[in-house]
Design a protein around this nucleic acid. Structure first.
Length: 592
DNA sequence: GCCGTTTTCGGCCCGACTGTTTTCAGTCG
């Protein structure tokens, strides 16, 4: 059983225990265990299991270590199978309904025999739910709505779609005269590849007109909460947007809190407690003494307790002995330890990008010509543009055959010689990796190119072993410069093909092949979660927009966001190198 | 179920909003 499958089992145990009404801290322990497994490297995990040292991992104790070991060695877990069998499958899907949690599910099951969405719907229609103690007409209506929209509401949204929705809201809030400050937070600010909802924070001396504007703005389908300090709306896309109104003195604390992640916040609060302080969205106050954190924060505001003024996130981190942690790193994956040791990376920025390698033209499945792409790259200030159209086996994308790519190479050479654009164009290919790992072009063709991207576009259903061997064989080819989209995933649409990422990363390092961070908003592949360790071991990254038109070139910015989440600095990223370096490296045929 | 430079037991982040209540439980983030 793979690492991620084991993590999935632990997470599911957490859900099942929750439905059983188990101690919430036990539930959390399983959730933590699942996340820890996801974050650990597969080879390291195997080593720890073999050595019996799993318990040395923070978050994994005796019980979880035993269960993980059982899963790893037998592929099964008796505890899990028994638990799963004891709980009707339909109960789990009830959790998808907005406003319905474990307690309500237990009540519905105990008193009405509800153990599926269908039965819950039927019970609502007869009015039985409204008659239940603790429920009422409103609850019943909300459940009916929740059932009707559960797919739309549960859906996550691509980061760039969420950003497109958030930008005008943020601008609208900032345009209100009552608003002192408005910021976005949440997974959008952390630049997660997908976003579940939008979070906006506002400080104002006059909340009512701000909340009223927020719930009445265009694009709002439904108002789900409308209080004095908080409002929630459902946008027509199904995306939920939350607005929170925060006094100016507490803005920084709230901004940090609602940026998350949850794991990061828990670790920050634990760190604060270790220093006799209590951190919340209200402030950073002494942990001891009477009263809630909020009350203490308010006292502090009035100058009744000792406390240094904290006016920025930098000062907030500093108060806990930490360097500023960029939002992209706040995933609870070691950033606090790094910040403590002054070992945070200087993350790559959009301005560091000098060029892009993987782009298409009308020669294959792009929508703009070579010259149009070059002009657009120049307008973006890029020093170089790599053209990598598809190769002949990608028939669906009108892949180039030998004659057409020869003509394209000549056209690129002529364009560069003409001096028409300051941006230099490199002639490349996105060469198909054939099902057996051979390349789609003969060596003589590849030798004519400035560089070669290799990608999988066929036979997605190969076994993990076959696919891994196939990709490694392709990377061993002496003409290969970089590997395109590692898994071929399309976010929220299609899982990637099965691979052993560690093995492929090792092979890429060994053969000095670069792996691409495909910055297309549906891809962001290789995943940010893999980059940190890979780069530490020496893997080089190319942030490539995989642009199919001139507008798509700007997608490299999404790739920078993902690279930042992967702890990458500009030293790790080949496309942050100036053109002169690139030319020299490409002449040597290998970059890494 | 995990964890410990206050602890091997007793904690575990904590507040807003809603709906159902008439003081609070459940859900959510």
């Amino acid at each position: 059983m793979t690492k991620n499958e084991m993590a999935g089992v632990l997470a599911e145990i957490g859900v099942l225990l929750e439905l059983n009404g188990e101690n919430p801290f036990k539930v959390r322990a399983y959730q933590t265990g699942a996340r820890v497994l996801e974050a650990i490297e597969e080879a390291e995990l195997v080593r720890l299991i073999a050595a019996g040292e799993l318990e040395s991992v923070k978050g994994i104790g005796e019980a979880l270590a035993k269960k993980i070991t059982e899963l790893h060695t037998t592929g099964r877990l008796g505890f899990y199978e028994k638990l799963k069998a004891s709980i009707p499958h339909g109960l789990v899907e009830l959790l998808q309904i907005s406003g319905v949690g474990p307690k309500k599910i237990r009540a519905l099951q105990a008193k009405l025999g509800v153990d599926s969405i269908a039965k819950l719907q039927a019970a609502c229609e007869t009015g039985a739910v409204a008659a239940l103690e603790g429920f009422g007409e409103k609850s019943q209506e909300k459940i009916i709505e929740g059932i009707r929209h559960r797919e739309k509401y549960a859906r996550r949204h691509l980061w760039f779609e969420a950003w497109a929705a958030a930008e005008p809201i943020l601008a609208g809030l900032r345009g209100l005269t009552q608003v002192l400050r408005a910021e976005h937070a949440g997974s959008l600010r952390r630049r997660m590849e997908t976003v579940g909802d939008l979070d906006f924070l506002v400080s104002t001396s006059d909340p009512k007109p701000v909340v009223d504007w927020f719930v009445a703005q265009g694009g709002v389908a439904e108002v789900t909460a409308h209080g004095e300090t908080k409002a929630s709306v459902r946008l027509q896309s199904g995306l939920q947007a939350d607005l929170r109104l925060i006094p100016q003195e507490q803005f920084v604390f709230a901004w940090h809190h609602f940026t998350g992640s949850k794991d990061h916040n828990i670790q920050m609060r634990q760190r604060a407690l270790g220093r006799g302080l209590s951190l919340s969205e209200w402030g950073l106050v002494p942990a001891a003494g009477e009263g809630t954190a909020k009350e203490k924060a308010e006292k502090q505001k009035d100058g009744k307790t000792e406390g240094k003024e904290i006016a920025s996130e930098t000062e907030l981190f500093a108060a806990l002995g930490l360097k500023f942690i960029p939002p992209e790193l706040r995933e609870g994956l070691g950033e606090i330890e790094a910040a403590e040791q002054g070992a945070l990376p200087v993350l790559i920025e959009e301005a560091d990008i000098r060029g892009v390698f993987h782009n298409h033209t009308t020669a294959s499945d792009g929508h703009n010509t070579l010259e149009e792409m070059a002009a657009a790259a120049q307008a973006l200030g890029l020093e170089y543009l790599g053209i990598a159209d598809h190769s002949k086996s990608s028939v669906q994308a009108r892949g180039l055959d030998e004659a057409r790519i020869a003509a394209q190479i000549a056209a690129i050479r002529r364009l560069n010689a003409s001096g028409k654009f300051r941006t230099h164009v490199f002639a490349g290919t996105e060469c198909d990796i054939l099902p057996d790992g051979r390349l789609d072009f003969a060596d003589e063709v590849l030798a004519e190119l400035d560089y070669v991207v290799v990608s999988v576009h066929s036979a997605f259903k190969q076994s993990r072993e076959a696919m891994t061997a196939r990709i490694i064989r392709a990377m061993e080819h002496p003409h290969v410069t970089m590997l395109g989209h590692l898994t071929g995933r399309l976010l929220l649409q299609r899982e990637g093909y099965e691979i052993d990422a560690d093995k492929i990363i090792d092979a890429a390092i060994a053969h000095r092949v670069v792996i691409e961070l495909n910055a297309n908003p549906w891809r962001l592949d290789m995943d940010w979660r893999l980059w940190r360790r890979a780069a530490e071991r020496g893997l080089m990254c190319a942030i490539n927009p995989d642009a199919h038109d001139t507008a798509g070139l700007t997608d490299f910015r999404l790739g920078v966001g993902a690279a930042r989440k992967g702890w990458l600095t500009k030293e790790h990223v080949i496309t942050a190198r100036p053109r002169a370096d690139i030319r020299r490296l490409l002449v040597e045929r290998k970059i890494g």
